[in-house]
Simulated scan of single mutants.
Amino acid sequence: MIVNMQCSITLKNLDLDDKEARRKIEDALPDFRFNVFAPPVVPLRGFPRMIGSSEYGHASLRLGDTFAHLIMQYDENYQDDWNKCFDYAHKRIGELREALQSVEATFQFGGIVIQYVMDDFPEPVTTLSESVSKVSVGERKLTHLQIKFSFPYRENYYINVEMEPVQNEATSANALGITIDVNNRLAKQRSDAPRVVDWEDLVKIEEILSGIKSSTLHQLVEKGEFAI
């Protein structure tokens, strides 16, 4: 099941001291109710100037002069339906993109993260050690195992995957947690052909993630293969 999805964006040229800019953002995001905060006396990196949440609390948004962070939480009506989760995320991310474009904010970097929990594997440490990492500690019992890997994708993007045992908050049962992060930081790091990034990168990140299905993750856990 998908627990949540998050979209993080690094920005330039967003001036939240401008009342007109704040009004445009609020008008572009009518489902959100915002609180606005004055800037701190001492500048703090990552300090939010606007914090909002949707009517039923399924989406929350933090905005600062250099960032936007959107979190979409899924309840039992969505968690097991991959398509519904992605449709909701697509809607919210699209609204955010349009809101920021309306105030001429410049996109720098962006990433979307999925947090997924698999209840199919009640012994997640054993599953990971036998099928993914091939770790052995002899006759001793392996009590925790965390696996991380990253790779470039389509020349401009990174895909980062993290796997570790978690506890299902609803049932308290052991489960396997998988976090997938797709971002466009590789575009700026390429020394051979650095390029200007723009809002279209965020659209492409969504497209990459839409190619990942529940079956993709089962293949990863059962065979150690991440095919995308």
Score class of each variant (00 low, 15 high):
Leu29Glu: 00
His90Thr: 15
Glu139Thr: 15
Asp81Phe: 07
Lys19Trp: 14
Asp18Gln: 10
Asn13Ala: 10
Asp201His: 01
Arg195Val: 09
Arg23Gly: 09
Tyr56Met: 15
Val103Ile: 05
Asp181Gly: 06
Pro48Glu: 09
Asp81His: 11
Ile51Phe: 12
Asn174Gln: 11
Pro165His: 00
Cys7Phe: 02
Cys7Pro: 01
Leu142Ser: 03
Glu206Tyr: 07
Leu44Cys: 14
Leu220Lys: 04
Arg185Trp: 07
Glu169Gln: 05
Lys91Tyr: 11
Tyr88Ser: 10
Tyr116Asp: 11
Lys24Asn: 15
Leu70Arg: 01
Ser215Thr: 03
Lys19Leu: 14
Gly224Cys: 06
Asp65Ser: 10
Pro122Gly: 00
Lys141Asp: 12
Ser54Asp: 15
Ile9Ala: 07
Thr143Ile: 14
Thr171Val: 05
Asn174Val: 13
Lys91Ser: 14
Thr126Met: 07
Lys148Tyr: 00
Glu169Val: 11
Asp65Cys: 10
Gln6Val: 05
Trp199Phe: 00
Ile147Phe: 03
Lys204Asn: 11
Lys188Cys: 13
Leu128Pro: 00
Arg45Phe: 11
Lys204Tyr: 04
Pro165Val: 00
Gln146Cys: 05
Tyr158His: 10
Phe37Cys: 03
Thr106Ala: 01
Asn4Trp: 08
His58Ser: 11
Asn13Arg: 13
Arg154Val: 15
Leu176Ile: 02
Glu162Val: 12
Val117Gln: 07
Ile228Val: 12
Met5Trp: 05
Asp27Gln: 14
Lys213Met: 07
